[in-house]
């Protein structure tokens, strides 16, 4: 019974109450994933499980036996910032920095969803290829709250990253 966190296996908790979020923060000393509400209402705890973005606060860690979890700490390679992390710095996509890891993980998961053709609430044609317009990005990122009001910078950063990835 183990869960793979940023490529390394970790033991599942003995107490099934333990959320994936608390496992990361309290047991594995990976506090980059943030606890904003513990209610599934803010997105600060977003991590990627096998590439899908989920809320680690509502995830019981025991449910994720054998799954691959990527957290904010797993994005930078060889000490270099992930291009999206860099874009957040350049576009000032944060102020206090608390919602930031969740925003970044969420945006990476979002890009994969779009690639798979998953439409959104604002997609006019459900069958068409996904084009990540600004309105699409804003809708798809709406599960990640920001109280400092860095929304414009966040969307700018994600736009730039998506453009570069697509290019």
């Amino acid at each position: 019974m183990s869960i793979i966190i940023n490529g390394s296996p970790a033991a599942l908790p003995a107490d099934p109450r333990t959320s994936l979020l608390d496992l990361l923060r309290d047991t594995l000393s990976l506090p980059g994933t943030k606890k904003g509400c513990n209610q599934g209402a803010c997105g600060a705890c977003t991590v990627l499980v096998d590439g899908d973005r989920i809320l680690s606060c509502l995830a019981l860690a025991v449910q994720y036996d054998g799954r691959h979890v990527t957290t904010i700490e797993g994005l930078a390679e060889d000490g270099a910032l992930h291009p999206l992390q860099q874009a957040f710095v350049v576009h000032d996509g944060f102020q206090c920095g608390y919602c930031t890891p969740g925003q970044i993980c969420s945006a990476i998961g979002m890009a994969a969803e779009a690639k798979r053709g998953i439409p959104s609430h604002v997609s006019e044609d459900l069958s068409a290829d996904v084009v990540l317009t600004r309105a699409e990005l804003q809708e798809r990122m709406s599960g990640n709250l920001c109280r400092c009001g860095a929304h414009n910078g966040i969307i700018d950063a994600i736009s730039e990253y998506n453009t570069e990835v697509a290019a």
Binding site: G40, G43, T46, D52, R53, I54, L55, L58, A59, S106, G109, M110, E113, R116, G117, I118, P119, S120, H121, S123, L126, S127, R140, S142, G143, N144
Partner: peptide
Amino acid sequence: AGHLAVRTRYPLLSRAILGGASAQIRNM
């Protein structure tokens, strides 16, 4: 919501799901 048959044959179901919660929650 993303299943092609649902999107094309039952768009109200796709749209209802996509209108709910957030992408992270819908993934779970």
